[in-house]
Design a protein around this nucleic acid. Structure first.
Lengths: 341, 341
DNA sequence: ATGAAAAATGCAAGCGCTTACATAACTGCT
DNA sequence: AGCAGTTATGTAAGCGCTTGCATTTTTCAT
């Protein structure tokens, strides 16, 4: 026996089957170019050897990886998981593999991850949100790597995006809050630097406030990382003011759940004493007590559409087309009219 | 200008810097083998060209990928996210990259994912739990891919594992439940087929029941996929019996939260009318109302230790050493004595 | 049967990198 | 200055696969 403990190669298979490596390669990649008898002979050789193609070698020779990379801010909350699941299912349908990594909302880590994925030969890339160093886009362009942005729809951006209008979505929710009679409003936002979703959601609230002739002093905004604990902390700080808000809009469901939990600890009734809203409509929002009024984002649809668009871009060499998805407010129990109405 | 729209190669860099490709390669991989002046010249060439090494080519030549693959059952709940985060941080420290994929608790998908990761050249693999087709272990062995199992500690298993004793951990919790006076017990477990963690947790409960001379008819077990909705469904079914249990142990926190939520919908007070416990101690457990009594699993420590052990295995060609981690019960509000005590 | 077109297979040139080995350029010492 | 020892750099052989082109085999209409 030769070369024990060393994975069999195409050559080994070819030898055993008594054909050339080219034929084996064709059997694996374009079976219909090979006559049935040969194909079967090759197949048994493959089975006998337990042959498995070497990905790196294949990539080198074929100059395509059929791999798409995605960089998401975090895996530690469910926001992206569901969309990515759909994304990967759809990609799989089309013969692509997904590589995921996370940036912990840190632009530098994100950039490093992009480089890693590119070096690994990702044919295409899915990025979350638009805000990042423009040099990155140039590099991607130069390497002609198809890139698509999700979770944010900005028709005029340099890069095509499949997403929703964060600003308008949040403005609608804020309008609803104001319409219910709230005049003193708080917002617990994620960190807006380098995060257009967070930034635009803030803008949305500001739009609504402006539109309804509230003074800007009636709106308090706090920025904090997207973690439950931070939502709780921000909430207690905000409620300790002399004239605390009667409604607090949170940048996402995670922050809202933190706020909700702290409210409960502080013996504040939601929504009687204070209303709290979220954004995203993840499972947590339904489960929370009281259930969270929030903005529903069509995560799965977004993932699926993004996959389709990216595949289209790759196969047609074309530049991407943006698409906007609709969001809607899901009214549950955490939002109500202010006390004394 | 030559070859527009084509990523620069080592050759391009070498030419521009006026050195050989070997020198450029050394600058990138073993900088101290190159004199400073040359190194700087090469560096500027790299910068000027925006050079980025081609991973596939590097792998082919070096025959290592410095990549570890991990296959987890799901990304859709936080159980694995935190451990994996620590795992990847530690790997990064040692110069390894992590590739993650998920199997949706489906053995066939898991097997396919393993093949994919192996084909991609993963030097090592992290798998969750022991139960799987033994052929897989043989293949891995044959290809000499270091493999480690986490989330389950089974000292006698074929493969080294870093984890905890699911059976004893669950037995302790069940003992505590019985000690509080419960005599009619329910268990909502995950699907145990192909999942040793689920199976062992069931065994743990059975152990406790046996030990305290309860009859087996006092224990009702239901298996259902690990989703909130399923926990809720299982809960209502279980409570609709003529003599429903006074305490329900759930296979993980996700199921428990589902049960908790349904209890609330059914106007059942927890723990007054019925006690509910979880397993894992994810964030959700603290946030739930009432907060969940559960078994704390040291996810981060497990991830970190697994990374260290895997790196050790890779660098010393050694076979792995198993390690057991301690779990402990976290008593919160969802467990109390049965009504009328 | 026979030859041209079609189908199946083989040949061999890379893909972009690493690395053993060979060679060249420096040290510092006498 | 000259030599041995050390350090820096160059040369070139692959790594395992795909694919354009050349060659052989099959098919089929005449």
């Amino acid at each position: 026996m030769s070369k024990l403990r060393s994975a069999p190669t195409l050559d080994d298979v070819a030898k055993l089957a008594g054909v050339s490596t080219a034929t084996v390669s064709r059997c694996l990649n374009n079976p219909d170019q090979v006559v049935k008898a040969t194909r079967e002979r090759v197949q048994s050789a493959v089975d006998a050897l337990g042959y498995m193609p070497n990905f790196a070698a294949r990539v080198m020779a074929a100059k395509r990886t059929s791999t798409i990379g995605a960089i998401i801010p975090t895996m530690e909350n469910a926001i992206f998981a569901r969309g990515l699941q759909a994304f990967q299912e759809e990609l799989h349908q089309h013969g692509y593999t997904l590589l995921v990594s996370s940036s912990a909302y840190n632009p530098e880590i994100e950039e490093e991850q992009i480089r890693t994925l590119v070096a690994r030969g990702a044919d295409g890339l899915l990025l979350i949100g638009h805000d990042r160093n423009p040099r990155i886009y140039e590099d991607l362009e130069r390497r002609s790597i198809s890139t698509l942005v999700a979770w944010s729809y900005l028709p005029d951006a340099q890069i095509a995006s499949i997403g929703f209008d964060n600003r308008t979505a949040m403005a609608e929710l804020a309008n609803r809050v104001i319409e219910l009679g709230h005049r003193k409003i708080g917002m617990i936002s994620g960190i807006s630097a380098g995060n257009d979703r967070a930034r635009l959601r803030i803008e949305g609230v500001k739009d609504a406030v402006k539109q309804s002739n509230l003074s800007t002093s009636d709106l308090t905004i706090v920025e904090t990382p997207y973690e439950i604990e931070n939502g709780a902390e921000a909430f207690s700080k905000m409620m300790s003011h002399t004239k605390p808000p009667t409604a607090i809009l949170c940048g996402n469901d995670v922050l809202a759940v933190g706020a909700l939990h702290r409210a409960q600890e502080m013996k504040l009734q939601v929504p009687k004493d204070v209303s709290i809203t979220g954004f995203d409509d993840i499972e947590l929002a339904r489960i929370a007590t009281p259930a969270l009024t929030t903005v529903h984002v069509p995560h799965r649809e977004m993932g699926r559409k993004a996959a389709l668009e990216l595949v289209r871009m790759l196969e047609n060499q074309g530049t991407g087309t943006s698409a906007q998805l609709a969001t809607h407010i899901v009214e549950r129990q955490s939002l109500g009219p202010p006390a004394g109405t």
